[in-house]
Design a protein around this nucleic acid. Structure first.
Lengths: 211, 211
DNA sequence: GACTGTGAAGCCATTCACAGCT
DNA sequence: AGCTGTGAATGGCTTCACAGTC
């Protein structure tokens, strides 16, 4: 595994390949070609090969890739050979939905704490968890060695909530608040801005309107 | 406005600039430079100018941009000078959360229908809406002239749900299901894959671990 | 013959650097 | 003097095309 800089787009696709391979494996298929993967996930065969080649030589020339093997490798690369505890800060509608989101559990993520500083929400049960005050973040994060925090608080409290997570030892934040978080260099942040995603769509709808 | 091909990243940033300008405007600030916008949203000043230049000359050399003016322009470009009705298909946790998500309303999106084909969910009230059977999609989409559909169903039903939306006349889909939708060329799809976003984080956590 | 792995080419987005206004 | 708008340069990702392997 060379220490090259990997494009973020490659990581995103790796996640997609990995999930596609799970499906393929379930069907009992043993071998798959880059072309078949490409077909299945909507990219080019060369792209698939290039993406995988960043991490090693997983295929056999003239044959293709062993599905189980490649699946195991992609999961390993993404760090999904272990389970990841995570916490959610913000127990509003979105935060609550994420606590019970199946997709996370299926891919190895376990929500081990939900926090809010709204007194009307504290104590509420969500799945097997109880919403806790944000003062408890540090305790839970240390107890479960949590590295991942999911931020679903309003923009106005996002900065404070992020700091609580970072001070507790969280090293990666998935941020749903529509603001730019500034964090130390050793903390990874990725934003999911739901409105922005819709606005990409309205932009294109308008473009087409004009033609 | 030249008919150039605009990078998708530019549209994403435009949405961010636009929201930042709303904040700035609220503070009563009249004029702003590309450098100040850049600072506020975490990109380079040249990037800000280049992005805006795709759509016209909104600034004044030696001075900067008029905040209200630029805000109006960015909203217009994104199509946010009008409100957009939208429907949600999938009334699970995520779908329910999105129906009541404030951020959408604030940016001009109105959810006018929620659908599911799970009988235990049909009839349930979410905000001022009542969950309807998916057979009602066509009626509601046509009635409100809905162009945008939000898909929050499981992967297994996503293809069918997408087809219902498309047949009803929807032209843009925000897809939360972790599968690749194949749609006609006149339909825009953007995916939000929540697990993938977390997996980008675990990938980076693992990388750092190794150093 | 089929398919992977990869250097080279091509393409697209970002950054630079400066001319053009105010 | 200050800041925008933009052609040119850079950097990075994707596609191409083919050598290498089964």
């Amino acid at each position: 595994m060379k220490a090259l800089k990997i494009p973020e787009a490659t990581i995103v696709r790796l996640s997609v390949y990995s999930r596609f391979l799970e499906q393929v494996d379930k069907k009992g298929i043993v071998t798959i070609s880059s072309g078949e993967i490409a077909e299945g996930v909507g990219v080019s065969p060369a792209q698939v090969r290039k993406d995988l080649a960043y991490f090693g030589e997983f295929g056999t020339r003239g044959v293709g890739y062993n599905v189980k093997d490649l699946l195991r490798h992609t999961l390993k690369i993404l760090g999904l050979n272990a389970r990841w505890p995570a916490v959610v800060v913000g127990a509003g509608n979105l935060g609550s939905a994420l606590v019970s989101y199946r997709g996370f559990r299926e891919r190895g993520f376990d929500i081990v704490g939900v926090f809010d500083n709204d007194l009307t929400k504290i104590g509420k049960r969500l799945m097997e968890l109880e919403v806790m005050a944000t003062e408890k973040i540090e305790q839970i994060v240390k107890q479960h060695n949590v590295k991942i925090g999911i931020l679903t608080v309003p923009a106005s409290s996002a900065k404070d909530a992020a700091n609580l997570l970072i001070n507790a030892g969280v090293k990666a934040i998935l941020n749903f608040a529509p603001i730019v978080l500034s964090v130390p260099a050793d903390v990874e942040v990725r934003d999911i801005d739901l409105s922005t995603r819709l606005e990409i769509l309205t932009f294109h709808l308008c473009l087409k309107e004009m033609m």
